[in-house]
Design a binder for these strands. Structure first.
Lengths: 107, 107
DNA sequence: TAGATATATTCGTATAAGCGAATAAGTGGA
DNA sequence: TCCACTTATTCGCTTATACGAATATATCTA
């Protein structure tokens, strides 16, 4: 894969990176990876206020990273693509290796 | 890989996601992926002021995502781990698929 | 249609983060 | 040591973004 141009970079940043740059969004994504949940369930689980969760979900939905499905008065959210989690897990592995490398370099 | 706990999530966010959440940092990472460069070369290439580039590089260095190597008065920066680019490319592919899926859904 | 439940939105505020100009600090050569 | 070059840091400012309280909207049931 080649180096991205300015336009693609802009899109990449706005639609994915920025969402992943927010820790609460990451929490929400992992919670939805475990299982689809409705808004209040997420708010209770993550101890975030309902409006905040709803706003984050709106953004994630606009970015097409999550999908909303109304079921009665509730709205069930679920991940649109599990690769988001794969990306995050890749970063976690990277983080671990970096720490390990640092520890080795210091010893 | 299991679901990350709060502490790991905090680290992940602070050390990697936040850096990737800045579009100029992404530009810098890709530029260093092409080849190691010194600060002014990056500033010229990306049309960002020297102090701004330097500040971003400092952050990336603290996160151990880039490595600095002094060569005379200049400092050559290079990527610490190419997997950062792999992660970004994975996101790009994800972005493309999302767009494609949207286009298909609308037709 | 009234009420209960769940979600979305608006609003004002507070916090965070990036920016360039100016300046300081480090490095090597004369 | 002085100078030229490169990089790092400080400073004040601006912009962007997240937040909760309050409120509006949507859905279902009776």
């Amino acid at each position: 894969m080649s180096i991205p141009g300015t336009d693609e970079l802009q899109l990449l940043h706005e639609q994915i990176c920025q969402a992943i740059g927010d820790i609460k969004c990451i929490q929400i994504l992992y919670a939805l990876y475990e299982q689809p949940r409705q808004v209040t369930a997420l708010a209770d689980l993550l101890e975030i206020s309902q409006p905040t969760v709803s706003r984050h979900l709106t953004v994630l939905r606009e970015r097409a990273l999550v999908i909303a499905e109304r079921r009665g008065p509730a709205v069930i959210y679920h991940l649109a693509d599990a690769r988001v989690i794969a990306v995050l897990n890749m970063m976690r592995q990277l983080l671990r290796d970096i720490h390990e490398r640092r520890a080795t370099a210091l010893s």
